[in-house]
Design a protein around this nucleic acid. Structure first.
Lengths: 331, 331
DNA sequence: CTAAATCGTGAAAACCTTTTCAATATAACA
DNA sequence: TGTTATATTGAAAAGGTTTTCACGATTTAG
């Protein structure tokens, strides 16, 4: 039905081996043959069947990026970094979404187990550390953005503890001592780490930790509003609020705006992620920026390196973050 | 090296054919064999090599969604719809990004030509209609969200002309007669169509078209600000502004806010897309909503249908849009 | 109790490549 | 000239599945 390498060989009056050689740019083939084959390929509109090729070579040169959903525009820079590193070594990057369903995550990893892709990168996995550890023993898996406790799989991330600590320390340095934290009920490691950082910063400055100053909500803007409302209705409300994501922070700011607080003066906000949308908001949000592109690039480089020769020793790469200071902290 | 169906057969003391039958849940196999095979699979940790399987069956049950980038969170609902339809028929959806590079778009389509996927959906292609027409003759290609003029490839979209017309007609019905349009230099068909709709609405109401009321910028927020600035500095500035995307509209609103215009009163805004971020903005943006999920779902259903038996007759599906009215139009 | 249908199974072909191996032809060398 | 190295080439194996075909065994029908 469909045109195969045999048809090309017949058309070009050579063997399939020669066609293959031409297609793969092997050196030891006469110019005449090259011409004949190329002409035949052109004429027949042939494109090689990757299934045959990949089967024979036992490699697909494709890497799967597994993410929760494409909604978080924040992933896009990571993906770009991954693609840059992949293309540089003739790999393609495919993306698939789990919608936070661990079963579906496992289903997608099935593509890896079944050799439909050569490697997989998990961006915020929902599977547990044990499972991933086990799978990574036999398959090329890496993690990015989000580390997992007790997981010795290749991971590229930032130091979220330090990031949270830096953010809160900055608020304290600006004179704030009543600092609220809006975080999530869902305990991703990064949320946990940022909360730890928050507490460490308090301790650094001998500020007692106040249970009421921590609000546990969800990842949505509405939850940010809710959190801010909760905090500001306390008997002694905070003068600064650190949110573990920009989305949440923007919700919090919206609430504050609606209540007439002067943002950056009466009340100060610090977000996390530096999402591209954040500069669309007035007032502009101060935030912690993590190197998305660099993380994506590095995780692919290391993954491919590992695919060639596994190195179980060094597997955690921590990239530097930075503070981006704007209106919401009065900068 | 890796465990194959042969190993399983040996372990289970049956032929590879029987193993295959068990794995594919064929009926004509004894319970005893089923047990033995399953035990062997479990014991050896076998998972079938999809390359072998796909090669033999000449199908991968994978569909590729080709998008510009994952930055536009607006795509995420489309993807969800696509996945829902695909999973229902045992297909997986993979995503790949072009970053608006037609060459890369072609490269990704190569996965289709080379049978690494069974079908592809283009969401806003950068290739021209001719090329796509030609490719679609031999391969399973569909388009979603964005139609192409002179392109008879399976397409699911909304009626952007009517959508633009409805939006502007609404503004006129609210009493506005000086209406600005902020659109893009890049001439995607949807932009063109929405502009046509804008002009038709004016004509519907005997309002003369004013060249100066149209600003051509880019897709970014900044361009929206720029556009609004341009329009409001005209000798006779508009009292209502229609933007072909929410991102642009939000930029425009930001400018208006900064200049002290009372949005929804002095100046009215209408966006397009109803991005999920839009409700995070105060004031809330009125916009045209298109059924993203439904479009994604339908395009996959029709694509799979076409893969079974091509139907070149009916290939354009137009889904209904709707107006979402909020603060920015004073609703 | 025989003939016919059904069931369960395995050997082998098929899917499309790449790559090894051996063979031929040519060039280089002594 | 005879020998060896080099350059091209094709036949065939290999990669892991699914599926067809044929066969023996068992059940059903008559």
């Amino acid at each position: 039905m469909s045109v195969t390498i045999k048809d090309v060989a017949k058309e070009a009056n050579v063997s399939v081996a020669t066609v293959s050689r031409v297609l793969n740019k092997k050196s030891n083939v006469s110019e005449e043959a090259v011409r004949a084959v190329n002409a035949a390929v052109e004429k027949l509109g042939y494109s090689p069947n990757f299934l045959g090729r990949d089967l024979r070579k036992s490699e697909t040169r494709r890497i799967l990026a597994i993410i929760a959903s494409t909604e978080q525009s924040f992933y896009s820079d990571v993906i770009r970094g991954m693609e840059a590193a992949a293309f540089a070594q003739n790999y393609d990057v495919l993306i698939a979404t789990t919608h936070d369903d661990p079963n579906h995550e496992m289903h997608l990893l099935g593509m890896l187990f079944s050799r439909a892709v050569d490697g997989a990168v998990l961006l915020g996995p929902k599977l547990d550390a044990n499972t991933i550890n086990q799978l990574a023993q036999k398959h090329n898996i890496a993690m990015c953005l989000e580390r997992l406790d007790n997981c010795n799989v290749l991971t590229v991330t930032i130091d979220n503890v330090k990031a949270g600590r830096d953010a809160v320390n900055y608020l304290i340095r600006k004179g704030h001592r009543k600092i609220g934290l809006i975080t999530t009920i869902q305990r991703s490691q990064s949320s946990i780490d940022r909360e730890i950082g928050y507490k460490l910063a308090l301790k650094d400055n001998n500020i007692p930790f106040v249970e009421d100053y921590v609000y546990y909500g969800g990842y949505e803007t509405e939850q940010g509003m809710r959190g801010c409302e909760h905090l500001m209705n306390l008997p002694s409300p905070p003068t600064a609020i650190f949110s573990i994501s920009d989305i949440i922070a923007i919700g919090a700011m919206n609430y504050a705006l609606s209540k007439g607080y002067r943002i950056g003066k009466d009340l100060v906000f610090m977000g996390f992620d530096n999402i591209s949308y954040s500069h669309m908001f007035v007032p502009h949000l101060s935030t912690v920026e993590q190197p998305c592109y660099a993380q994506g690039k590095l995780v692919i480089e290391k993954l491919i390196e590992n695919m060639k020769s596994p190195n179980p020793d060094h597997n955690l790469y921590t990239l530097p973050h930075s503070l981006v200071l704007r209106d919401s902290t009065g900068d």
